[in-house]
Design a protein around this nucleic acid. Structure first.
Lengths: 216, 216
DNA sequence: CTTTTTTCATAGTGACCACTAAATATACCA
DNA sequence: TGGTATATTTAGTGGTCACTATGAAAAAAG
C-alpha cells in the first residue's frame, strides 16, 4: 500500500498536502457532525487548503463522504470485522464485537460512537441516497453477517432449533446502535462495557458442547 | 385545555390558520429530518403560510423546535411517561415502556423512532445548545427515572442488594435508543417487540414476592 | 530554453439559509 | 366613522451553501 519510491514522479505540479491525512480529517468531521452539518469550507479550513484543491483531490461532497465512510470502515470502524475474523461461534463473535465497540466508542482519539450509525440519522431530501446506502451497510452488513453466523450455529446444534436468528441478530445490532448514542451522550468505557455484558446475558441457552454435533 | 367560548376575542386581525395544527406539522418535519435539515421555508410551505406568519406565531427556529419537542412529549412521545404512571415495580414499568415504544415507533401515523433520540444526533456548531438540551431530556429524564425506580426496588428487596441501578437503567435506555434507529431502518412492529422481549430476559433474577418485604 | 501537465490561490457563481421591513388587510373599540 | 391592534402579503436583507472559472505557479518532458 506504500508508494513505490522507484516509480516515476507524476508529470504536473505536485500537490503540497497529504491526501491521506486530509481524508482522515474529513472522516472525523463527518463522524462528529454528520453529512449535512459539515461544510466544504469547514473541511477545507481544517485541511489547510482552498476549496478547489479539495474538489480536485476528492470530487464533490458526496463522493468525499463515501470515501470517508470507506476509510472509517477500514480504520477505526474495523472492530466488528476484526472480531468476526476468527470465525468462532456467533456468541463469541457478537460478544467480542460489543466489547470492542465499548472500547472503540470511548478511545478518546476519535469522536464517540459508530460513524456508520450516526452520520446520517438526520438528513434532508438531498442526502436520501447516502442515508439509504448507510442503512444497507448496517442491515446488509454487520446485522446480516450476525444472522448468518447464528443460523450456522443453529445448524451445528449449538443453538436450539427454532432460534430466531434474524431477531437475535437484530437485538444485538439494536444494542450496538444504542451504544453509539450513549457514547455520544457521555457514557464512559466502563458504562458501555456493562451494557455489553448485560446484553450478552440475553443470549439463549447454549446446547452443551458434549451434546452438540461438532463442526467439521 | 379547550379555549373558552365566553372569553373576549383578541383585539387585532385574527390569524387564519390553526396554530396547533401548524405545530403538529412542525413536530413531524423536525422528527423526520432533524433540526438542521428542516428549513423555515419547508415548514411554512407545509403549514400553508408565509414565513412572517410563522415567525409571528412561533418566534425563531430554535424556539419553534423547543415547542415542537414539548408537543411531542405531550403527545406521541408520552408513551414512556404513561407506562411509568402506574407506579409498579421497575421491571413492569420498563417492559411496558419498551412494548409501548415498539408500538409507537411503528404506528404508521408518525415518523419512526423517538423524536428526542433522533432529532439532533447530527448537528453543526449552531445547534449545540439544542443537542445538549435533548441530551438532558434523555439522561436526566427517562433514564434517571428508571434508575430511581430500580433503586427503589432494590431498597424494597425486590432486586438483589448491590444491583447496579444506573447500569441497568442505562442498558434499557440503550435498547430504546437502538430501537429508534432500527425503526428508522425499517424494522416492523413485530421485530421491535421481539427486541423488547429479548431485552427483558436480561433483567436480573427477581427476589420472589413471598420473601420480599412488601411496599407500604 | 519552451511546451505540457497538473496544482495552486483568488475571486467569484447562483441558490438557498434564517429572518425581516414595509405596506396592506381585518378585526375590536370608542 | 375613525383609531388601534394584530395578521397578512410582498419583497426583500445579508450570510452561507456547494461549487467553479480563471490564471499563475511548479513540476517533468522535449
Amino acid at each position: 500500500m506504500k508508494k513505490d519510491p522507484t516509480a516515476p514522479r507524476p508529470r504536473g505540479r505536485p500537490r503540497k498536502f497529504d491526501r491521506e491525512a486530509a481524508l482522515q480529517i474529513a472522516v472525523r468531521m463527518f463522524w462528529r457532525r454528520g453529512f449535512e452539518a459539515t461544510g466544504i469550507q469547514d473541511l477545507a479550513d481544517a485541511m489547510g487548503l482552498a476549496p478547489p484543491s479539495l474538489y480536485a483531490a476528492f470530487g464533490d461532497k458526496k463522493t468525499l463522504f463515501r470515501e470517508a465512510i470507506a476509510a472509517y470502515q477500514a480504520g477505526p470502524g474495523a472492530f466488528a470485522r476484526r472480531a468476526a475474523e476468527d470465525g468462532g461461534p456467533a456468541r463469541e463473535v457478537i460478544a467480542a464485537s460489543l466489547r470492542a465497540a465499548a472500547h472503540a466508542f470511548t478511545d478518546g482519539e476519535h469522536p464517540p460512537g459508530c460513524m456508520v450509525i450516526l452520520s446520517t440519522t438526520n438528513h434532508g431530501p438531498g442526502a436520501d441516497d447516502l442515508a439509504a446506502w448507510l442503512r444497507t451497510l448496517r442491515t446488509d452488513g454487520t446485522q446480516a453477517d450476525w444472522t448468518r453466523r447464528i443460523e450456522r450455529d443453529v445448524a451445528d446444534g449449538l443453538l436450539p432449533a427454532g432460534t430466531d436468528a434474524a431477531g437475535l441478530a437484530r437485538f444485538y445490532m439494536t444494542v450496538l446502535e444504542g451504544m453509539s448514542i450513549q457514547a455520544g451522550d457521555g457514557a464512559d468505557r466502563a458504562a458501555l462495557e456493562a451494557v455489553a455484558t448485560l446484553a450478552m446475558t440475553a443470549w439463549p441457552a447454549q446446547i452443551t458442547q458434549s451434546t452438540a454435533s461438532p463442526r467439521i
